[in-house]
Amino acid sequence: MSERTVKLVIDGREVFAKPTDTILKAAKDNGIYIPTLCYLEGLTAYGGCRLCVVEVKGNPKLMTSCTTPVSNNMEVITNSPRLNKYRKQIIELLLAERTHTCSVCVANGSCELQELATRFGVDHTSVSRNWKRFEIDMTHERFVLDHNRCILCTRCIRVCDEIEGVHVLDVKRRGKDSSIVIDLDEPWAASYSCTSCGKCSAVCPVGAIYVKLKPLSETKKKELPEFVVERRRR
């Protein structure tokens, strides 16, 4: 295992990180909070939710801390009025994108999007909410896929592909019409590749995939077991 040989400055604090670390990892190891949503340690970083963007000195562009590796003498700012404003706006956009009605959601109380809204004080959405109705797939005997609550973080796709090793799920179409798809757009019960392992429901940050008749607080995993993460790293 490599040593913490890279010296960088995060929010004015000098920290040390391994050369293979990302900014996010370095920050986390040093107790500096950066919000994330699509990121889950142990899965390939996706860089889609853009919540973990940080400012890197000398770079005019915002960088996703989950994908950007550390380098020597890098100066990172994780917390600035501009970044927090963007993060708030992103949370607003996610809340407005589909019908996120917390009061009637199975994930109420264990939802990462809801927590982020609380943390960043997103008390309303300045853009109008989308009330389009999306499909709910309840065909599977144990799981439910509710597209109304999906935020397209693709954690389910990645956990299915990378850890279960099946790749039952993918994204269909594109842009605002994107949605999670099972096999060739089949009802879940008819999927011939799904092993019903339930990992997708465990890693879903919101209430889009969940186990029937079980409280989400019981089935949800905010982190993958550490040994899994370690095995994936190797």
């Binding site: 009605t101 917390c102 109420n108 109380g109 609380t118 943390r119 004080g121 008390d123």
Partner: peptide, 10 residues
């Protein structure tokens, strides 16, 4: 009032 961290939707 500052709501950050204090309120919750739902």
């Amino acid at each position: 009032p500052s709501l950050e961290g204090r309120f919750k939707f739902g």
